[in-house]
Simulated assay, not measured.
Amino acid sequence: MVNEELLVFSARDLSPRYEAFSEDDDEHGNPIFLYSSFGYITDEYIAYFGRSNIRKCDLNQKDIRESLKRLPDEDVYPKAPPNITVVSTPIDDDNLFLKRPKLHLDFLGTGLLPKLMLQEAETMELLRRHPHPHIVRYHGCLIKRGRIVSLVLDRLPDTLQHRLEKSAQHFNVENCIRKLTSAVYHLHSLGLAHNDLTPLNIMVNKYDDPVIIDYGSCQPFGSTLITAGTPGWIDEDFTISAEQHDRSALDKIQRWLEERSKVQRQTR
């Protein structure tokens, strides 16, 4: 049973929330629901994870509290290296974003979650020493119990995808692609490939300038990847870091932006 002090009131308090479905459809052609899974991290960065045979939209407080089980720190958070940049609390939530590990059933008990977080922290430390205006600014790590529990990054208004979904009118596609390309080439000059460029991994600031985020798959060329690519934004599945993945994604993003802008003009 979950600790009674946990402030979990509804499914809205859970993050992330997933649903799994069978590969086969039912007799009416609808996907067959298998289970929902969900994570919860307390204010003290104690991680919990749960699984239920109830759809996530139907979960109530009792279902959630009975399903959540505490995860050992060593299954979620890496030990903080001595040379890591440390950010002190309290955190300015209005201007800073805390990136926590994504609790997922596939990773639990594998040792991959701490490894992923440490790899991303090390990548961000390198980028902190070699900054670029269109790569998200990293301030350091939040440390609890001797472990990295969160990366501290600039908070930005919106993703590129949500910005274009709201309105593509007056959005400067050429400016966006030029600045994205500059940021990607900066990564490549450091021997890194992002490996997961999508409109959801690009933010826009108040001037509509793009800022690349999410460096969980960013690794030196030739490195084996734990996670990589997003369906629809890659040519094929891959497990090795390479410049070509970013070039291909940039081409797809440019076509997507141009199509969005074209549709917007036609509907005016």
Rank of each mutant, 00 (worst) to 15 (best):
R155P: 02
S261E: 11
R70E: 15
Q169S: 14
D75Q: 12
K102M: 10
L250Q: 05
Q264V: 06
A168E: 01
L96C: 03
N172L: 04
F221V: 04
H139N: 05
R55P: 00
N172Q: 11
H188V: 04
Q169L: 11
L153D: 00
V149C: 01
F97M: 00
E259V: 06
K69T: 15
Q254G: 12
L180D: 06
M117R: 05
D73T: 08
A242L: 09
Q169W: 12
E259Q: 12
I135W: 03
K69P: 00
H162T: 07
E258R: 09
Y138V: 03
T227C: 10
V86T: 12
L105I: 12
D94K: 12
E259A: 08
L156Y: 07
R55V: 06
D214R: 02
S88R: 14
C57G: 08
H130Q: 12
V2W: 01
D237K: 12
Y77I: 05
N3T: 08
D13R: 09
R260N: 11
K62S: 10
M203R: 13
S167G: 04
D58M: 08
N60K: 15
A20L: 13
I177W: 06
R12S: 10
H162R: 14
L113G: 03
I226Y: 13
S241F: 00
C57Q: 13
D106E: 15
I64N: 05
S182E: 13
I213F: 00
S36A: 13
R70S: 09
E19N: 05
H186E: 03
S182I: 05
L59K: 00
A11K: 13
N83Q: 09
L164H: 02
K206G: 04
K262M: 09
E120H: 06
P78E: 05
K79M: 13
L127G: 00
E4H: 12
D214G: 02
K166G: 07
V173T: 07
L197M: 10
P131I: 00
V263T: 14
D235S: 10
C57P: 07
A47G: 13
A242Y: 03
L197C: 07
L113D: 00
F9S: 11
Q244L: 08
V76S: 06
E23A: 08
I91Q: 05
E66M: 09
F221S: 03
H186C: 01
E258F: 02
